[in-house]
Nucleic acid binder design. Structure first.
Lengths: 216, 216
DNA sequence: ATATAATATGACTATAAGGTCATATGACTA
DNA sequence: TAGTCATATGACCTTATAGTCATATTATAT
């Protein structure tokens, strides 16, 4: 947690510091990020930084929290109405929202990715607690709902399947953005036009597998 | 490439250096790894190191090559007889061998994982060329074979599917080893006893998907 | 024994990091 | 006006790093 002094700061200054930090952690991992660069960019003295934060980790935690909150804002209302959709439509909606978030908040997304790649598992756990566990739990929850509705195979090992969905979640993001990176500005509509078919292909495979099957 | 002097070294010394490097890169990413620690562990003077290698990157490339060769040894003979197996059996065999490699060469596996996590994509590409592309290609190759044999759904987008298999490959490894980490020594047989059912579950999902399906 | 070439060495340089601290500033209070 | 207190500052500290280089050592050839 930042120190009290940080929250007493005039808003403009606080914003400068947060902006500088967001920029730094979007471009560098925790270890490669530099307080020197951050204070330079934020136009504050180094000593001042240590008046606001107890150290690098303190700031990093604060920024990661910020990303988490932003994501929650994005998915929040949706998450409270999970039971209204069929399982695979729900999944589709999740992916679509994920894509939208990434495009609208590229720096937040970059921070998240750098965080996930963090080499030190201990640091990761310290900062984000059992978040990946929580993510597994989320998928497990919607899987249970899907099973109850008869949308998915009732024989599945849900623990394993939710793990798989979590991993796939990242994989899909990677794939989609590897396949639409292009120069210049692109409208959100154009992105959807290209991405939605890919999302649907992913979901098709997830639903039906890649094996041959006798169609009815 | 190491300098000529390195290859002129007495074998014992060369081994010490390689061992120290393997150890370092298994425990630290490229950026966090330290030449100081390596020379200390290898019991050579720092100046000597720069007689053998042009720098850190030079050594790192050499070690990554080593890991690649070791893996190829493991899968080499198998890769030359791909067409003898049914697609999903082939996949199963691949996973099993992957598990075996990981258990028998934990440090090599760790080096590989640290490499994959490397933050700097440019460095990654410089060192390993288009290796991840090659991995995609490998799966695409066996997918094409699987389609020709009628083992898999002929309507699949193979590019997307091979990407998915590549990612899944890592995911499965993660899951398996998260779920068997235990204290002390365990025999390879015990590991198989636990892991093989998990592998089979993964492959079942991959083949059939997680959706409900009318059984024949 | 002498000359030559290859290799070994660790003190040294330059650079950068995170973090500290005595001091300076400026705003509010009495 | 004088005193108090929160905040601002940048020089400085320690501890790393990758990489260099003049010098010492050793092996080989004459």
């Amino acid at each position: 947690m930042p120190k009290e002094t940080f929250f007493n700061l005039p808003e403009e200054k606080r914003r400068r510091i947060i902006d500088a930090a967001i920029n730094e952690f979007a471009n560098y991992s925790f270890y490669k990020s530099s307080i020197n660069r951050i204070v330079e960019r934020a136009q504050i003295a180094k000593g001042s930084f240590y008046q606001y934060f107890s150290g690098k980790k303190d700031l990093y935690k604060h920024i990661i929290d910020l990303v988490g909150e932003r994501k929650l804002d994005y998915f929040g209302d949706f998450i409270n109405n999970l039971d209204s959709l069929e399982f695979f439509q729900l999944l589709r909606e999740l992916y679509v929202r994920g894509i939208k978030f990434t495009k609208e908040n590229p720096k937040f997304q970059a921070i998240g990715e750098n965080f996930i790649k963090t080499e030190n598992e201990a640091l990761k756990r310290e900062i984000y607690g059992e978040a990946s566990k929580r993510s597994d739990d989320f998928f497990e929850k919607i899987l249970v709902m899907g099973r109850e509705k008869g949308d998915i195979n009732p024989n599945l090992d849900l623990k394993l399947t939710s793990f798989l969905l979590t991993k796939l979640n990242f994989a899909i993001s990677d794939y989609l953005f590897e396949n639409i990176d292009r120069e210049g500005e692109v409208s959100m509509e154009d992105i959807y036009d290209e991405l939605l078919p890919l999302v649907d292909k992913f979901i098709y495979i997830l639903e039906n597998g890649i094996g041959i099957r006798d169609k009815g």
